[in-house]
Design a protein around this nucleic acid. Structure first.
Lengths: 350, 350
DNA sequence: GGCTGGACTTGGAACGTTCCACAGACGTTA
DNA sequence: TAACGTCTGTGGAACGTTCCAAGTCCAGCC
C-alpha cells in the first residue's frame, strides 16, 4: 500500500539539517561536499527512502538523459538483441532507456512516439517503424531520431541498417548456385526495409539473368504474412523451387504453409529467411538465413543518438552494416524437373 | 535537426491572445470554452507545434497516468501478447504504457524499475521479474505493483498468474496417460514461477504414484537453460522417456539437445513445454504445451493496477487463471522397453 | 589582526504545467 | 432596477528540482 507522499528533497534537507541545495549536490555525487555533511545527507536519504523526482529534475534541466525506443514488434526476437545493444551502450553513456511498442499498428506507433516526446526524451530510436515517414521527420524536429532497419531519407534523421540489397543478393545467389531458377520472394509488405529487400531481390534476379523468373508475393514481417505469401506462391504453376522470405518470421510462416501442402523442405522447395534470429538457429528448424549484427546495430544506433544529443552533430549519418549468409538445412538443390507422378511419400527433411 | 526550444503553453497563449489557463483548458478538452476561443487556441497549437510537457504536467498534478511495465525477457514471445493485453486495457482506461527490460539480469531489472519510479509512474506491472522480492515490496510502498507470473506474498502486491500446479499436473498426467513413467522436469531456475511449476511437477508425480521417478534438472526459462537441463537428463541411466520443460523456450532448447544425441521426438522421448507461445504452434515444431491466456493476463494486470490507483483498493488480489493442455506432436507413447540394439536410423518425427 | 582565497554552503529564481479562487459579462427574476 | 446566477476567462500560487550568485568559515600570510 503506497504511503502518503514520497519524501522530497526538502524533507531530506530538513532531516539532515542542511539546505536542499546541498542535498541536491550530494545526490548528484558532487565533489565539493564535506564528508560529514555528505554522510548525514546520505543517512537521511536512506532513512526517508528518498528518490529524486525525475520530472522536477527534467523540468528545470530541460533535458533528460532518457532515450526513447520504439519496437515495432515484440513477437520478433530480432529486437531483443537490438535492444540489448541499445541498453549496453546507454549504460556506458549514462543514459536510461524507455521503450514502447505500437504492435505493428501505425497509429499506435504514433501514440507511442507521442508519449515519449511529451516526456521530452533526449532522443528517439525507432526500431523498424511502420509509421509514416512524414511523422518520423516531424519527430526529428523535436529531438534527434535514429531509425533502425530502414534507410532514412530526411537529412534530420540518422539510420542504422544492414545492406538489404547485399543480403538479398546473397540469398538469391545461394539458391541460384544450388541450381534453382524459379526463386520467388515473399515481401515484407509495409514493413521497414521491406521495399529494399524486395528491390534487392529483383536486382539480384536480373543480375543472375533470371529476370523472367521474378515472382513477388505480398507478405509481412510476420508468421501470418509469410504464410499467406507462401500460399499465393504455391498456387502458381509452375511452382517456385525456392522461396526467399523477407524475414525469419515470414519464413516460418511459409514453412508452415509448405508443410500444410504436404511438401518438404528442402527436397521439394528451398527456403531462406532473413535476420538470423534465435529461431533460425533452432536445430529443429535450421533455417538458412541472412545474418544481421543485431547487437551492433542497437549499439550503433545509441552511439549515433548521443553524437547528435551531446556532440551537436547535424549532418545525417547512414550506417550500413554488412549482412552475411548463414547456410543451414532449409536449402538444397531443386527437385528434378517434375515427373508425372506426384510424390506423396512422408518423411521430412534431415 | 531539432529547432531551438519547443513552444510552451505561454507561447501558445500569446499567439492566440488568451491566458495560459485557457490554453490549458482547451488542450485538456474542457467543455466550458467558447467555440471561437477554442478554435483560435487550436490554431495556435497547430501553428507552433505545441506539445504539452508531460514533466511539468506530472509535477503539478502529482500523478501520471503512466503504467510502467517491466518485461523480463524480450526473447520470449510470451510477453508480446501480455503487453498487447496491457496496452489494450490501458487504452480503455486512458493510461499510457512505458516499458523497460532487465534482460534477465536482476540488477538491470532493479535499475529499470528505479527509472520508472523516478518518473513517478502511477503503477508498475512486473512481467515475470527475476529481481528479489524484497525490492518488489519496496517498490510497492511507492506505487501499486502487479506481478505477472509469480504469486506475490506481500500484501501490498497483486499478482496475476496461471495455476502452475494445475498446468504442471496436466502436463505430467498427459505423459502418464500415454504410458510414461520416467517423466523428468527441467526447471526454470531463478525465473518467476519456476518454483511453482517444479513443485507442481513433484506433486503431480506423487499423486500419480511416481514419486520414485521424480527427476528435476536445473534449467532456466531460456533455450540455453533447456538445453543444459536436457543434457543433464539425457546422461542419466535409465534415461527419462518424457521431459516436461518449464516453458516453451526451454523445451526448444531441450529439443535441440535431444536431436544432438540422435534421438527422436516423440519416438524416443516425449516433450512438453509451457506457455503455448507462437513458437509452440509452429507446424514444424508442433510442441505439446500448456496454454496460458496471455492477453487476458495482461489485461487483468492492468485492471488490477487501475483498481488500486483509482479505486484505492488496498486489499491484495491474487488472480489465478486456468491453464489448458494443448496436445500437439511432441508427445506420444514411450518407446518399448530398451532392446540391446540402439536405434541409429534417421527419419524424424511426424 | 586584518586580508585573501579557497572550500563549503545557501537562498531564491527559474522550469512549464494545473488548480483555484475570483472577475466580468450578460441575462433572468423579484 | 437591483440582486443573483451562469458562463467564460484570468492571475498567481503551487509542484520538486537545479542553477547561480552570493554568503560563511577558516587557515595562512603579511
Amino acid at each position: 500500500m503506497p504511503k502518503g507522499k514520497p519524501p522530497t528533497i526538502d524533507d531530506v534537507a530538513t532531516s539532515a539539517g542542511v539546505s536542499k541545495s546541498l542535498v541536491s549536490l550530494v545526490v548528484r555525487g558532487a565533489a565539493q561536499v564535506s564528508p560529514e555533511r555528505r554522510a548525514s545527507v546520505l543517512r537521511a536519504v536512506a532513512k526517508l527512502g528518498y528518490r529524486p523526482n525525475a520530472m522536477a529534475r527534467g523540468l528545470v534541466q530541460k533535458r533528460t538523459r532518457i532515450a526513447g525506443v520504439l519496437v515495432s514488434d515484440m513477437n520478433n526476437p530480432f529486437f531483443a538483441d537490438v535492444v540489448a545493444g541499445i541498453q549496453a551502450e546507454a549504460r556506458v553513456q549514462g543514459y536510461r532507456v524507455l521503450m514502447n511498442t505500437g504492435d505493428r499498428v501505425p497509429e499506435h506507433e504514433d501514440e507511442a512516439v507521442e508519449t515519449l516526446l511529451q516526456l521530452r526524451v533526449a532522443g528517439l530510436i525507432l526500431g523498424a517503424p511502420m509509421m509514416e515517414s512524414a511523422l518520423v521527420v516531424r519527430a526529428s524536429n523535436e529531438v534527434p531520431v535514429v531509425v533502425i532497419g530502414r534507410p532514412a531519407r530526411a537529412t534530420s534523421v540518422d539510420s542504422v541498417a544492414d545492406d538489404d540489397a547485399a543480403g538479398a543478393f546473397a540469398a538469391v545467389q545461394h539458391c541460384a548456385s544450388l541450381g534453382h531458377r524459379r526463386i520467388a520472394h515473399i515481401d515484407g509488405g509495409e514493413g521497414a526495409g521491406a521495399m529494399e529487400r524486395r528491390e534487392g531481390y529483383e536486382a539480384a534476379m536480373r543480375k543472375l539473368h533470371l529476370s523472367g523468373q521474378i515472382r513477388v508475393a505480398r507478405g509481412a514481417f510476420t508468421e501470418v504474412g509469410g504464410h499467406q505469401g507462401a500460399r499465393e506462391l504455391l498456387d502458381q504453376e509452375p511452382r517456385p523451387t525456392a522461396i526467399f522470405a523477407a524475414n525469419d518470421l515470414a519464413a516460418i510462416g511459409a514453412l508452415n504453409a509448405i508443410e500444410e501442402r504436404g511438401l518438404h523442405v528442402p527436397q521439394d522447395i528451398s527456403l531462406v529467411g532473413y535476420d538470423n534470429t534465435s529461431l533460425a538457429s533452432m536445430r529443429h528448424l535450421s533455417l538458412t538465413t541472412i545474418h544481421q549484427p543485431r547487437h551492433d546495430i542497437g549499439q550503433m544506433a545509441m552511439e549515433l543518438l548521443v553524437e547528435r544529443i551531446e556532440g551537436g552533430r547535424v549532418k545525417p549519418r547512414r550506417v550500413v552494416l554488412a549482412p552475411t549468409l548463414v547456410v543451414r538445412g532449409t536449402t538444397g538443390p531443386p527437385p528434378r524437373e517434375r515427373t508425372h507422378l506426384r510424390r506423396a511419400g512422408r518423411g521430412g527433411r534431415k
